[in-house]
Nucleic acid binder design. Structure first.
Length: 475
DNA sequence: GCATGATCATGC
DNA sequence: GCATGATCATGC
């Protein structure tokens, strides 16, 4: 149904200009203004309010903007929302953390992945790219304490296109996802496989599955999405005015992919000792070396002066240093942020903090090895994310066991001033375990039953990490 | 010798 | 003051 419009539907800038009238308004304001002078519509507001109390109706806020502000009915096909201008409308939340940082609340879902047809598409001709090359971003502030979604306020409205460098990476991401489907491994897709464009899980229930063309194994429905980390960067550095971007790793055009470039650059310094690297890349030699020295050196090798790189932030890449002993073993397991006992027991595995962390994070393992003089030497680096099976078989088991132990009441025995407990141990599972991660015995969180207990986190077993490393590091 | 528990050190 | 990365220490 067409109403009078005040924008040129063939012109992206005109659409943007018209849309920026939404800035500072709530969804309720927009509905109210739309109804002025049209009393017969007022009753529809309350209909909307009832409708949108149903939290399962995702996309409801976007529909309000389409129908009550732009006055077109939503299409449900693969064309962009403003077809004649090639503009896709995305109404999406952001939030402000307790420490004041501003983050995208969600990944930006672009379009469902049709496993059967995507294998015949090129990136440039793909449905995905039609829906993501030019986006009108409407950002509203999500606030937990606001009960009615219509009271959320729209604060930013801006046309967005990925930059030329971003498109290179997004295209490569697309090809990685398509390759996995072609290999009959759609069921093993994970957001951590890629950098900016992810294959995000999308199903009403976790049991939902669909077919894939090159395997009998049913796969989770997934959608192409710009990762949360990518949208957080876009929000902070392109949408909200006044903030500088971080330094880029790739400063000029290269034939290599981003990951190839990083690996090659770092491996130019293979066999350099930490001391050599400090001499080469840092002004001073460290007497007492900072704990994150290896991460700093990694940035310096990549030509980054600070401790942030644009691509790493966008792709949610976490640098982890791995030290291999002279005996070709890794002594220490890998730690992660401590969890709050009371929060963990309230979560389900499917939407748990740790599942999200492992499935959405891509790691850069920077590998060092102790030489015969016990001096650490750089061996190289490797990008990694946890394989789908390890995450959903092994880690899931440990996580569920941990929740069960907490729910049933942690068994604590004191011996020689040390705590012994029944959390899952490294010897219980090949992939991960639970262990303390605190400053000292007084650094505690409350257990669900109220007892204070030293902070704990999930650790990846050292043996498991070793198995994930490329064989070339163990020569 | 290794698994498990404990804590240090830095930087924001 | 706390999150995070790193490593130590003890006892099985």
């Amino acid at each position: 149904m067409e109403y009078l419009t005040e924008y040129d539907e063939t012109n992206p800038q005109s659409i943007e200009l018209y849309a920026q009238r939404m800035i500072g308004k709530t969804f309720a304001d927009i509905c109210r203004e739309d109804s002025l002078g049209m009393p017969e519509i007022i009753s529809r507001i309350s209909n909307y309010e009832i409708l949108h109390e149903n939290r399962n109706r995702k996309g409801g806020l976007g529909e309000i903007i389409e129908e009550r502000f732009f006055h077109y009915s939503c299409n449900n096909d693969s064309r962009p929302d403003f077809d004649k201008a090639g503009v896709e409308l995305k109404v999406t939340p952001y939030k402000i953390n307790k420490n004041g940082s501003i983050v995208a609340k969600e990944r930006l879902i672009l379009t469902m992945i049709d496993y059967d047809t995507v294998v015949n598409e090129t990136f440039e001709e793909s449905h995905l790219w039609k829906k993501s090359s030019l986006i009108l971003l409407v950002y509203y502030l999500y606030q937990k304490e606001i009960q009615n979604r219509l009271d959320y306020k729209i604060n930013y409205v801006k046309l967005f296109s990925p930059s030329k460098q971003d498109i290179e990476i997004i295209k490569h991401d697309f090809e990685i996802i398509v390759r996995k489907v072609k290999e009959g491994r759609a069921h093993e897709l994970s957001e951590g496989d890629t950098l900016y464009l992810g294959a995000a899980p999308k199903a009403a229930t976790s049991q939902n599955r669909r077919g894939q063309p090159f395997s009998e194994i049913p796969a989770k429905p997934r959608a192409f999405a710009f990762k949360n980390s990518y949208m957080t960067y876009v929000l902070n550095h392109y949408i909200i005015p006044g903030k500088d971007t971080y330094e880029k790793v790739i400063k000029e055009e290269t034939a290599e992919s981003f990951e190839e470039y990083v690996v090659h650059k770092i491996e130019m310094y293979s066999n350099y000792s930490i001391r050599d690297l400090c001499k080469k890349f840092l002004e001073k030699e460290y007497e007492k070396r900072p704990k994150n020295l290896e991460a700093i050196l990694t940035y310096r090798i990549l030509g980054i002066k600070g401790n942030h790189a644009e691509e790493f932030e966008k792709a949610n890449i976490v640098i982890k240093t791995i030290r291999i002993g002279q005996n070709n073993k890794i002594r220490e397991s890998m730690s992660f942020p401590a969890f709050r006992f009371k929060e963990l027991v309230m979560e389900e595995w499917e939407n748990s903090t740790f599942e999200a962390y492992l499935s959405e994070t891509r790691f850069l393992f920077v590998v060092y090895k102790y030489d015969e003089h016990n001096e650490l030497r750089l061996k190289g680096c490797q990008f990694w994310n946890m394989p789908y099976q390890d995450l959903n078989m092994e880690v899931q088991k440990v996580w569920k066991r941990t929740r069960q132990v907490l729910t049933e009441g942690l068994e604590i025995r004191q011996r020689n001033g040390r705590n012994y407990n029944n959390f899952p141990k490294a010897s219980d599972n090949p992939v991960c375990h639970v262990r303390p991660h605190a400053s000292n015995a007084k650094d505690t969180y409350e257990l669900p039953d109220g007892r204070p207990y030293p902070k704990q986190c999930f650790w990846l077993n050292n043996h498991y990490i070793l198995k994930q490393l490329d064989a070339r590091f163990l020569k």
